[in-house]
Design a protein around this nucleic acid. Sequence first.
RNA 1: CGGGGCGUGGCGCAGUGGUAGCGCACCUGCUUUGGGAGCAGGGGGUCGCCGGUUCGAUCCCGGCCGCCCCGACCA
Length: 593
Amino acid sequence: MRWSQSFLVTLREVPGDAEVVSHQLLYRAGLIHKLAAGIYSFTPFGFRSLRKMIDIVREEMDATGAMEVDLPILQPKELWVESGRWQRYVDDGILFHLEDRKGGEFALAPTAEEAVTDMVRRSVTSWRQLPFNLYQIRTKFRDEIRPRFGLLRGREFLMKDAYSFDVDEKGLDVHYRKMDAAYRRIFERCNLEYALVEADSGAIGGSASQEFMVVADTGEDALVFSDAGDYGANVEKAVTAPLPEPWAGEEPRSFGEANAPTPGITTTEGQAKHLGTTPERIVNTMIYEAVGADGKAWLAAVLIRGDLAINEVKLPKAIGALHVKLASEEILGKVTGTRPGFVGPLGLLPFEENPISLFVDRSLEHGANLWCGANLEGLHHSGVSIPRDVLSLPYFKGVVEVATAREGDPSPTGKGTLRIRRGIEVGHIFKLGTKYSEAMKCEVANQAQKMVPLTMGCYGLGLGRTVAAAIEQNHDDVGIIWPVPLAPFACVVAVLQRDAHVLEAADRLYEGLKAAGVEVFYDDRDERPGVKFKDLDLVGFPVRVVVGGKGLQRGVVEVSTRRERKAAEIAPDRVVELVKKTLAAGAKTLVTD
RNA sequence: CGGGGCGUGGCGCAGUGGUAGCGCACCUGCUUUGGGAGCAGGGGGUCGCCGGUUCGAUCCCGGCCGCCCCGACCA
């Protein structure tokens, strides 16, 4: 492909709405265009990279024995009502939905569990037809509350989604491990530094789930790792080993003998300072409105050490609720008689005739000689002992583990301490179990002639997002440094002068590389050398061949890799061989012999 | 959904109650040609949309739409 005949337009300046580096570079290199918030076009160049991503994913999926299918994006509401997801997704506002001319409602699918389960249940009747794994690579739609960062969080995006079907959990394990291995190969082929973390399975539901995260400072997710290398989790899911207890070995003092005023001081730090203690000794009491699986609302009080924060993703599961949110100050006032800052666990009033449910975070289970709010404006109780004063309360319901993991906390594996980094979620694999097959009656006869719901897994991988993540990890201050497998073209030939003999030499090199099977682009534009160098660095061709009059006089052209940007002078007849060797080695450094 | 910001040529921006300007990009010519050239000439904008105030609105006011950031939320 010659530049002079291609549709490639680079930008000198960054469009104002591009915030993160992958977005800026995709834009400047002329690979994508924004059509609306979170909706992007791929140019021919951008699409070449996306296509390579597609091919890699397809190859690795096929290699596992998974079979490609094509499921509709436009899906009838009834299917989504059947699985129970319609209301939830509409309420959350994430589902694009529309009506046909007769008033029938449809969803633009954000995932395809329903569609694939429907197809399977109509075709499969016996365990003998199992197992299998079906995947597709198709556009998905999600009306994200806040699309951002270019391809990293779009409302329309390309995703590979796979769904495995087994007769039992054991079969699911096999599929899950295969997908895990395939994902590792995919991200390794893309030259990505990635990490595996345990994740919350969120709205899709199910038991085990793992996220594949590309480590990048611009990532939207916080990841928790053990520095011993044996633990990783999304911060939403992360747990720690029990924290050191500052009160260990102390004799519990009696309750309330040193009650102290804390007038107008509502922050934990402020109170600790005022009371001459540390935040670890302050009990924070948070009142939540919880909604249970039966749709009933109730109130929960959760106690946590003052130096810790409650993880509101972990909380619902821990206390047996579906959703939680912090109670309004009005409700808070009704059950505690005070305002935030002075709430404590003792003497909490029933709410609408139902006693409040009290939970204690593990960090406080053995706590002694603590301070807590007195449920009176400006007063704290002293000498609080959790086992003595709190665990005995009639509305105490249990000890839970709901603290947010922090940098430096001990790893739950017992080895190492936790570190927090940021990452971009590029893949997510779930063990769904029978959630959808039960809801949608997708059953087969097992060997004992009993009808059983199929055991499912689902495996998502964001393709555009992975391409963007690859740029986040592979760039410098002048442009993209494509990993060879994702580069729009592996190699570029640039001609510096349009003199006949120079052009002729460049043409010959370009044709020679093409004939040798190298994916080569040819910058044959009538531009000054400086312009070309800048553009080629920006677009990020892994290997560059520069043909100029001065070099030709000495019988050489210049070859370099984008990553090193160190040129070597090479005789033209050796270029094809060296370029091929360099590309085969990943184009990190130039192979010159 | 709460808070903040922004909509002016392809991109980045300035500006004014009296018919709109700069830089980059683009076109033509000449000179140039190894890291975003110089000079000269030129084309391109219903100033997001609707309404109001005004003799007159891109500017002031109201509404709407769109976009970006922070937060909440979120496979």
